[in-house]
Design a protein around this nucleic acid. Sequence first.
DNA 1: GAGGGATCTTGACACTGTCAAGAAAATACC
DNA 2: GGTATTTTCTTGACAGTGTCAAGATCCCTC
Lengths: 214, 214
Amino acid sequence: MSTCIDPSAIPEEAPPDPVRPHHHGNLKSALIDASIDLLNADGPSGLTLRKAAARAGVSHAAPAHHFAGLADLLTAVATRAFELFTTAMRHARQDAGENARARLEGICTGYIRFANEHAGLFHVMFLSADVDRSDPHFLRTSEAAYAELRLACLPFSRVAPDPDQTLEIAVWSLVHGYAVLGFGAPWRKGIGPTPPSDFRDLLDRILASHTMPD
Amino acid sequence: MSTCIDPSAIPEEAPPDPVRPHHHGNLKSALIDASIDLLNADGPSGLTLRKAAARAGVSHAAPAHHFAGLADLLTAVATRAFELFTTAMRHARQDAGENARARLEGICTGYIRFANEHAGLFHVMFLSADVDRSDPHFLRTSEAAYAELRLACLPFSRVAPDPDQTLEIAVWSLVHGYAVLGFGAPWRKGIGPTPPSDFRDLLDRILASHTMPD
DNA sequence: GAGGGATCTTGACACTGTCAAGAAAATACC
DNA sequence: GGTATTTTCTTGACAGTGTCAAGATCCCTC
């Protein structure tokens, strides 16, 4: 009897999708990737739990098993983004060579360029009200990014270590304010004046009263 | 027959609400007020078209006749907020007296204090992705706020007028970055280091290389 | 006083995040 | 190896959101 029917010929009852098994395999990471794609494509409001799920090829409620909610996904995205941010600044520093001043400049340039080129991500990292900024994993990676900037400021400290961190806060506020008030993200256009041709002039004003280590 | 029934006794058919007439009177302004209340109470995500309508005592679709959509309401709220912002800085400047340096410091202090005390509004003004920042009315009021800061920077310009606006952009970026990276809004907690005891130290670094006009 | 435009309401739609219940697969356990 | 449990995902539902269409109501003008 069994020979009468070729098992491979009959339309089998429920092989739901041979290419996509029931288990995704690495859905958590895939959802973060999808979210970053959506943010880069459509800006801060382009990210949605359901759209991220659809882009990862999964039903709308699947993310709930990996993220407690939208805020949790946003926090994970911001965390991943800070890793990219740190490596971007690190590369900018390395490209700048050995000179301490050039290195700090490189960090700041990387900071601003990242804000412009990844405006959606940058928005989530710094401006989203939903990210849980007390999350331990988020804290660790964001502080790693700040450490990169702090390290570049160290050679310019009036006293080392500066107890009030005045210089690094000044540089950090300057570059962040400049990046945020800028210029590049289409949904932030027209916010301010034309940026100066070179950020160096602004940095000069912060470092003017200091000895140049090189 | 008519005497059999006291007209004031029967539950009349449809006097919908004697205290609230069909026409609100000044709904557009009332919606902006309600939105500001909601933002101050519940933060940036507390503002909703329907909630603003309910708070103004009006049906959920009524705002559509005064605002093209949520983005339009947000733009109007941001515009109103910039007016408050400007007067706040102006008061801070007047309280600071005649000394140019003290006046600039007052402006910056007012800037930061406003960001902390009206965090929800500040978020909409500067950080919301939905505000139409090319709206003429918005542009006018926001530029008035910037003018207040620019005016306070004028006495410190190396050359007057500074063609590159380097100084004012430096001060502006510094104070804005400091305010945004701060400190005060509960949903932004834990973002950075402890702020220095006084913003004056940071301002010193911007103005160090300049002649003090007073 | 009648017409017309502005203003508001009601109802509906698609979309959102979130929850509950169940199916399917992987894993643990005996 | 076979069963039980846990993890993972699906389906379905719910309230809340912005937005649109159609109608009721009011005010103003002619």
